[in-house]
Design a protein around this nucleic acid. Structure first.
Length: 467
DNA sequence: TCTGGGGTCCTAGGACCC
DNA sequence: TCTGGGGTCCTAGGACCC
């Protein structure tokens, strides 16, 4: 999908169509997740610090992500891919490999002569792009080729809103002139190593040979890069696999200096991590703590337990213990808690879970009773956070989205994916007529089906982060 | 006003075991 | 009694991807 998150926002918010839109972390330490093509003209791109993006493109709409909406659209698109073949490998919400040979057109493609097969692939791809456009209003780009490597390269060349087919036999001709960075798996560090060795294009890599690349990059990486450089890629398309780890992390607006505060945050992160773990129906054996210090130096500490667990008390205590051992002098900008070595539920887990839930019910009931008796603690009024881009509904004015918020006011634009550009109104942040709402489907017809689905989103709805 | 969040894979050293 | 040789597991770090 082209500029996926930003494109979903433009589809959902008619007033933003044709305008620069930037989705990402809006805090002082945020980075750009996706910039619309209008914003890219100003030099804004993924991973750019948001502060720089604001300088480069001050008139853009800056929005926090709405992952439930992106997941809905993603489900629709992935559904279209599965019509082409059951063998679909999603790489993210907006990208996937499809093995056409494994699908209904496989036998036809195998029989067809070269030219006929090529025409069929092109027709399938154009139909797919049209279906995506029809069902979501968004554009996607397709790369077609004989391997995952070349399909990926082709789709990059096709963007935005295009289709590129690379014929078998043309691999080396296409790859040769590209910069080494075009190969997946070559990032900034590898690029530097290669540049120092005088290798800047893929053709240079092919010429260098496997021995030299292994020398420079190590056994696995070097051999893999060499294979790719000569257009060889035998990796199969593999259907969606179970996650191997689950983790949660937060970067704080201001570095944490206080040990007690760090420990409290670690416990909160561990609780969130456990919620995700359990929502996925998994348990884990290794608990990982991640700490990024004031100077951006990052360390991890881990502990492997005797067996897999999804017990919040166990995971929280382990994370806490790890956090007690790290030096936080100078301050901490990020904390993270993860669980690895995942397994599906075990009997012990279910048993421990039942015990704990029972205990929790007792303590919760007791706490409630105590709270009632001790005549209402002055529960700090939960100040609702209105995030730019967020979906809301007003009792009188209907559905809209938060355009901005500050000094006790929140500005809402009232429009929907199928309305024209809407008008703006301002309210007090605690206006009872205004409430957060779920994303609207981009097309009126679908939605009932795709929005509720079989809960494939896992952590998307229901389980919410509480308040 | 530098540098998110959620992942995957690889490497390397030490412990431990046979 | 200066030195083995694999294999596996654990821990830590780093590169990379979207």
């Amino acid at each position: 999908m082209d500029a996926f998150f930003a494109a979903v926002e433009q589809a959902a918010k008619p007033s933003l169509r044709g305008k620069p839109v930037i989705v990402g972390g809006l805090g002082g330490r945020g980075v750009v997740s996706t910039a619309s093509y209008e914003a890219r003209k100003f030099g804004v791109h993924s991973a750019l610090p948001m502060a720089q993006a604001r300088r480069l493109c001050p008139n853009a709409a800056f929005l926090a992500g709405r992952f439930e909406a992106y997941r809905q659209v993603s489900d629709t698109v992935m559904g279209l891919l599965r019509e082409l073949s059951p063998l679909v490998q999603p790489l993210s919400l907006d990208e996937a490999f499809v093995d056409l040979e494994a699908g209904p057109y496989g036998p036809v493609l195998a029989e067809a002569d070269h030219e006929t097969g090529e025409r069929l692939v092109l027709a399938l791809a154009e139909d797919l792009r049209a279906d995506i456009q029809r069902l979501t209003g968004l554009t996607g780009s397709v790369g077609a080729a004989g391997s995952k490597l070349m399909a990926k390269i082709a789709s990059e060349q096709a963007k935005p809103d295009g289709l590129v087919l690379i014929e078998p036999g043309q691999e080396r001709a296409v790859l040769g002139p590209l910069p080494v960075r075009a190969l997946p798996g070559i990032g900034p560090a590898t690029e530097q190593v290669l540049r120092r060795a005088g290798l800047s294009t893929v053709a240079d890599l092919a010429e260098a040979g496997e021995a030299e690349l292994v020398q420079l990059l190590g056994r696995a990486h070097g051999a893999g890069i060499h294979q790719m450089s000569i257009g060889l890629d035998e990796r199969p398309v593999v259907a969606d696999q179970d996650a191997k780890s689950v983790s949660v992390e937060d970067t704080y607006e201001v570095d944490l200096a206080d040990r007690e505060r760090v420990l409290r945050e670690v416990e909160a992160l561990a609780a969130r991590c456990v919620r995700r773990l359990r929502a996925a129906g998994r348990s884990g054996r290794t608990v990982v703590l991640k700490v990024r210090r004031f100077d951006f130096s990052t360390l991890t500490r881990s502990e492997t337990l005797g067996g897999p667990t999804d017990d919040e008390a166990v995971i929280t205590a382990t994370a806490r213990r790890l956090a007690e051992q790290v030096d936080i002098t100078g301050g901490v900008r990020l904390l993270g808690v993860g669980v690895a070595q995942l397994a599906d539920y075990t009997q012990e887990d279910l048993f421990a879970q039942a015990l704990r839930e029972e205990a929790e019910e007792h303590t919760a009931a007791a706490a409630e009773a105590a709270a009632v008796e001790s005549e209402e603690e002055p529960e700090a009024a939960v100040v609702r956070r209105w995030l730019p881009g967020q979906d809301v509904r007003h009792a009188e004015f209907g559905p809209g989205w938060v355009q901005g918020s500050g000094v006790g006011r929140v500005t809402v634009r009232f429009e929907t994916p199928w309305s024209g550009p809407g008008r703006v109104r301002t309210f007090a942040v605690d206006d009872p007529a205004l409430e957060p709402s779920r994303p609207l489907p981009l097309r009126r017809e679908e939605g009932a089906t795709s929005a509720e689905g079989a809960g494939s989103g896992g952590d998307g709805d229901g389980s919410g982060e509480g308040g």
